[in-house]
């Protein structure tokens, strides 16, 4: 007999206040040990509440609207916010960095999300925000980490080890031959978090989406199947995003004359 699916137990304001006391404990520890994290914790807690409440209203609105334009506009907003986050994290930057991060994120996240919702899950209608928005959010979160790590590693190598790249160029290497090692190292760094996550998933952690489905009463094996799909989706999107941003940044900083434009790399304050 199929198990009856029931929703997660609802939380009220008092429950959240009790949860907030856990952050207060962390603040107390910071104060007692002089860690100076109290202000940041308070700000982080406040942002969590405000951003999630706003998201709740926005999703309510989108679900009620049930129109592709609204969903696509929200996805564009998510991609832009993720692009900004991805390209402000690296310790170095260059003119045009944001655009390249945005393009890599948009292509990797949107293509992956639509492949999953269209070809695998078979969502009807295709723009159903109940699927598209949470799945795209997960993809963006992982892809932006991969992209920011790839960019950080690539810019650091092209800046700090520019002599090595130029030495290879001087000996007749093409730009791809000269930068093969920096690119490979950067992509490895970009892929490390998702590879680590895949290595320990289910053993150390139960991922958020699976936890949510189980809390909502879904049979564990249904949640497992979704989670497997999600992990593959995240790995694919992170790989595509990292490779794409690596290629775009490389093309910008090593021009068609096979010259390294290391002078265009700026170290952030």
């Amino acid at each position: 007999m199929p198990r009856e699916v029931v929703g997660a137990l609802p939380l009220d304001a008092v429950d959240l206040a009790v949860a907030a006391s856990l952050v207060a404990v962390a603040g107390g520890v910071s104060l007692a040990m002089g860690l100076g994290l109290g202000r940041k914790l308070a700000l982080g807690a406040l942002r969590t509440v405000v951003q999630l409440v706003l998201l709740g209203y926005a999703l309510d609105l989108l679900f009620g609207l049930d129109h592709p334009v609204g969903v696509l506009a929200w996805l564009a907003l998510m991609v832009t916010a993720a692009g900004r986050a991805a390209m402000t994290r690296p310790s170095r930057t260059f003119r045009g960095a944001f655009l390249r991060g945005w393009v890599a994120l948009a292509l990797s996240a949107l293509v992956t999300t639509f492949v999953v919702t269209g070809a695998i899950v078979g969502v009807e209608p295709w723009y159903d925000p109940r699927y598209l928005i949470p799945l795209c959010g997960m993809v963006l979160g992982n892809s932006l980490t991969g992209i920011s790590l790839t960019v950080d590693a690539l810019l650091e190598t092209l800046d700090v080890r520019r002599d090595e790249v130029e030495c290879r160029l001087c000996l007749g290497a093409t730009r791809w031959e000269a930068a093969r090692e920096p690119l490979r190292a950067a992509l490895q760094r970009g892929m490390t978090p998702i590879l680590n996550a895949m290595a320990v998933v289910g053993l150390v952690s139960i991922p958020g989406m699976m936890t949510g489905q189980i809390l909502a009463g879904a049979p564990p094996m249904d949640a497992v199947r979704y989670q497997i799909m999600v992990m593959f989706m995240l790995a694919g999107a992170t790989a595509v995003g990292s490779v794409l941003v690596g290629w775009l940044v490389f093309r910008r900083l090593v021009n068609d004359a096979h010259q390294l434009q290391a002078q265009d790399i700026v170290v952030r304050d």
């Binding site: 002599d163 090595e164 130029e166 030495c167 290879r168 001087c170 000996l171 093409t174 096979h258 010259q259």
Partner: peptide, 18 residues
């Protein structure tokens, strides 16, 4: 460009060993 740099070869002051 790669072929050019092979025939017009620069040896920089600070030798870079790979």
């Amino acid at each position: 460009w790669p072929a050019w740099r092979r025939v017009v070869s620069l040896v920089q002051q600070r030798a870079v060993m790979l």
